[in-house]
Design a protein around this nucleic acid. Structure first.
Lengths: 207, 207, 207, 207
DNA sequence: GATGAATGAGGTTTCATTCAT
DNA sequence: AATGAATGAAACCTCATTCAT
């Protein structure tokens, strides 16, 4: 994030872009990519259709921009959490907590992403996923390396391939949030990351 | 499944239905729900469009039928596996093995489901998921009760809420298969269910 | 033109196609290719838009079909005229007469073609003209060979390259018709082909 | 064209207008009227869209201005050639030579005009042609009167209505250039106007 | 009962034109 | 006076669905 002075015009443009993406996010997450028309987005965002197309060359590009931007944001937040000082256990806790928090704060996007990121015109996916998979992969590697370090430091037992374990933790967190989304009474929001981590800690923590 | 004598006509109809669904599955899993037209399905299945509409009132219904039927099949297979004799550990192993096997044998459907089941016209989902969620829920309950029994029988430690644990196991299995699908060299097919279960067993098995 | 028995369905289709092309011709010749929408054509021809697209994959193809079909018709008529018995002078007269007649009978197409065949989305032209140029070329060659034969038979003086002369005759005929179209009082329809041919005959006829 | 002192501002404006028309000509002749957007013209001519609209009320007017200006230029050149001293035969030669030359020097416009002048939004044509036809008519009258004078002076035989003959000569010249444009090897540029005129001279020249 | 031709609403996208700055 | 961002009507085309045969 280089610090740059933006002209009034540029700031305005950025604002418009954000409003467009916000409207799109809301509509997409409510109705799904294929069931939202560019006209709807134009109406909701209170721009003319043509203006939309000035910012994004087509519907697909608009969608991709939306997803990538959000993912970038998420990545930033989580990366921050991982950089906080602490031992490996603390880092895993931070990770789960940050992830849950950022997803909770972006529920409409989560809904969209759960819904569409995998589905969706396979063509779009192709382009998107390649990028996203790489990022996801990189993230999991970071978690895996924390686990590896924990094993070296005799804090963890090696119950499985660390990368696989990382993906498993991440996945169980996702699932927990999904359950919370659907049946909030039975599955309360995991304020304490250990709600999720204990499943793994019981086996892997060196006592 | 009540046993009923079907007339020749009825058997024929059932066959036709299967062919339609098979063609749909192939197309949907190749191109995604929204990128397949009823014409394509008609052509591939070698029926007239009108005939398709005699069997399914609309595209959505066809899709739902496809998913429900497959899920029913899967459920049957897995239920069978759970009914085999054995202790709780064996039952969990059977579950994971059966699940992996049935998914491996239905990769095109898995791809479709991973892709579309969550995404997809939210309207469809609404109707579908309610049904599927119920079934999924029921299944997880069955696994959870196995875990509970294992705890009672002093075979398992209670590392977490059994239902949550059941979902976690199921989820990690899914994830493993997903990884295998994308990077088959790094993530070989889990012939041995313990590849997956060890993540949990390390913590929960009473030694 | 092979003689084939057409089914009722096929005859109907051909009829529909003709109606579509007729409506298109009228609209195109009135307003020009780019100023006619597919909706207009659909409305005028009293078909649904979708039906139009069943017959022609897109607007361009519709236009091409229209032009090619008409040109084919014209070619047939003129070729017939050239096949009638007679000496070279008579053949040239037949040619001019047939050409004038067929164009007079297809004024709306002539207007369209004069207007669009050369202009028009350059891309369309590319594909069309190649085909049409070839046919035009072939036709002129036929006229040129009549002139050559006339020279051999000592009926004509060689005032210029026969092919060039053929094109000139054809061209002057076109021009005469154009003048007639615009100022019918001053330039009456050339009932007698010599009205046109005399320009050339005066110099080329051996007396 | 009255001689007037133009202010700097006015000269500047005229310059701008020329640049706009030059850019338009290039684009139109490359891609055709309907396939060039006002944005493209603005970009190529390095003016803002709004400025374009300050000079021409709409795209059509821009096109008309372009064509009229060019035709005016052509007219001037050819009129000049006709004013050179010489007998009627020489004048016809001068005419054909001047016409060919001016067209050769303005090929991109010729292409545009051949392509679009006739085609083109019929509405535009309506307005354009009226003006252009009048001019064309006047020109042909001038040529016709040369021919008439030649007949009076016993230099020409009256093989046809002089006006009709004038149009025919003009037309054959056009066609020759067209052929040259398309197949330059077979139809070399008519350096000598007699290449074209001989077709008529053979019959009309008094020997 | 099966067929598939016909339908037309609705999708994405372009581009001539306006008007606030 | 010059700019160019914003506009939105209208273009082409697709495809789920119907219904006469």
């Amino acid at each position: 994030m280089e610090k740059v002075k933006l002209t009034r015009r540029e700031r305005e443009k950025l604002n418009q872009r954000h409003e467009m993406l916000a409207a799109s996010l809301q509509l997409f997450s409510e109705k799904g990519y294929h069931n939202v028309s560019m006209h709807e987005i134009a109406e909701k965002s209170e721009f003319a259709i043509g203006t939309l197309y000035k910012f994004f060359p087509n519907k697909e590009a608009l969608y991709k921009a939306l997803v990538l931007e959000k993912c970038e944001d998420f990545g930033d937040v989580i990366r921050c959490a991982l950089e906080e000082p602490g031992d490996e256990i603390g880092k895993l806790r931070n990770y789960v907590r940050a992830k849950c928090d950022v997803l909770r704060k972006n529920l409409s996007f989560v809904r969209l992403f759960l819904a569409e990121s995998k589905g969706l015109s396979f063509n779009i996916k192709a382009g998107l996923e390649e990028e996203l998979q790489k990022r996801y992969f990189a993230f999991m590697e970071e978690i895996a390396s924390i686990i590896r370090r924990g094993i070296q430091n005799r804090r963890f037992v090696r119950v499985a391939d660390p990368f696989q374990l990382a993906v498993a933790i991440d996945n169980v967190a996702d699932t927990h949030l999904l359950l919370w989304l659907r049946w909030p009474e039975q599955y309360p929001y995991p304020e304490d990351p250990d709600t999720i981590l204990n499943i793994f800690f019981k086996g892997m923590l060196v006592q």
